[in-house]
Design a protein around this nucleic acid. Structure first.
Lengths: 208, 208
DNA sequence: GTCTATAGTCTGATAGAC
DNA sequence: GTCTATCAGACTATAGAC
């Protein structure tokens, strides 16, 4: 009798499995990003995915598992725009590029942004470790780069951590508080206007 | 038999009623601001208030009623800092004053900020009307004031609505995403630093 | 792989004793 | 005014037929 010793035999997924897993994750994103983890139910997710509840639990062992897979998949995507900021580039264009990429994520992935916002707003119980680990490490490294730019006189003297926080808050606002922005403006979120505004803001702010 | 015709006889509350209602509202704020409406349970609120669940429902008819009372009470408080911005004052100090008052609310009432954020993030089902009504009216009026300042050359040319959005997002970030800020900085939220940073940002931005 | 049926728990809310 | 007891429905998750 022949058995491989590998503990993690990577079973290939059938077409139907691939399709259903994708449907569940998309439905989970929709529901979790709207109601948070505790406020979401398997019934909602199953209905949104077009599956029965037991069938959904055939693909994922638990509600936690769906949420966890969404969050871990998301973190990488979320860090990418900041990773792309290069220390050897021109400071202002590098920072403005970061702002633009981040705003673009709010435009294209508002549900992902709200999923993340919900998790943090609710105390980040499932992702706190990654915040003080992976995220802090990356932010600290990039803050050092910004500090060097400041000291070299290439941009104004500025607190690099607060600068990064302000980029996060300003760009994510248009996704996370989308309902409020639309209610106040009386029209859809004008991302092109927002981009112009943010470019104006950061160009003036960063000027030495 | 004498009966007043008044449909809303304002029964005076006993001391114990006043105390218990306050305890329930405080507990509700704590729980709703952490888990959102759907994710919160009466059990949690009752425990936090030091009451039994039936006793809690003696003071408020339903979960909705507690949440509604918190939200309506909050809206006024939330609009006040903007209302205080005067058209006949000096533009830059008036706007910086607004920024400071708003940040001060994040510092002193982070739970209230998160309650509001949760509600909006989850689609604002219980407060959408106030957003397109009362809030929009106030914001539009103040936006006109800012526009006049712009046109008179007292501040830079700027989109007034996006300016207001940016004040909201920057100040509320320190309350709503408090866990993330603390994780990245590795220490408590430094509100004094934040204030200095935001003053620097808006002074540079507003300069004509 | 997908279904029905259901176990076992939690939820918002009520009844009725004290 | 406050409690114990409890309801009906919703909840996550499992068992087992097909």
């Amino acid at each position: 009798m022949i058995m491989t010793a590998s503990p993690a035999e990577p079973k290939p997924l059938t077409r139907i499995q691939t399709k259903n897993r994708a449907a569940i994750l998309d439905a989970g994103l929709e529901v979790f990003s709207t109601y948070g983890f505790r406020g979401s139910t398997l019934d909602q997710i199953a209905t949104a995915a077009g599956l029965s509840k037991p069938n959904l639990l055939y693909y994922f062992p638990s509600k936690e598992a769906i949420h966890a897979e969404l969050l871990t998949g998301l973190l990488t995507t979320w860090l990418d725009p900041l990773k792309l900021m290069r220390a050897d580039g021109d400071p202002v264009p590098e920072l403005l590029g970061y702002v633009r990429r981040k705003l673009e994520m709010s435009r294209q992935f508002p549900r992902e942004s709200r999923l993340f916002a919900n998790e943090i707003l609710q105390g980040a119980p499932r992702i706190k470790a990654a915040l003080s680990g992976e995220l802090k490490t990356l932010v600290d490294a990039k803050a050092q780069v910004i500090s060097k730019w400041s000291k070299a006189g290439l941009i104004t003297e500025i607190d690099p951590h607060h600068l990064i926080f302000s980029i996060w808050s300003l760009t994510q606002h248009y996704a996370d508080f989308d309902v409020q922005v639309r209610a106040v403006l009386g029209r859809d979120v004008p991302f092109d206007e927002a981009e112009q505004y943010l470019v104006q803001l950061f160009e003036k702010l960063l000027k030495p």
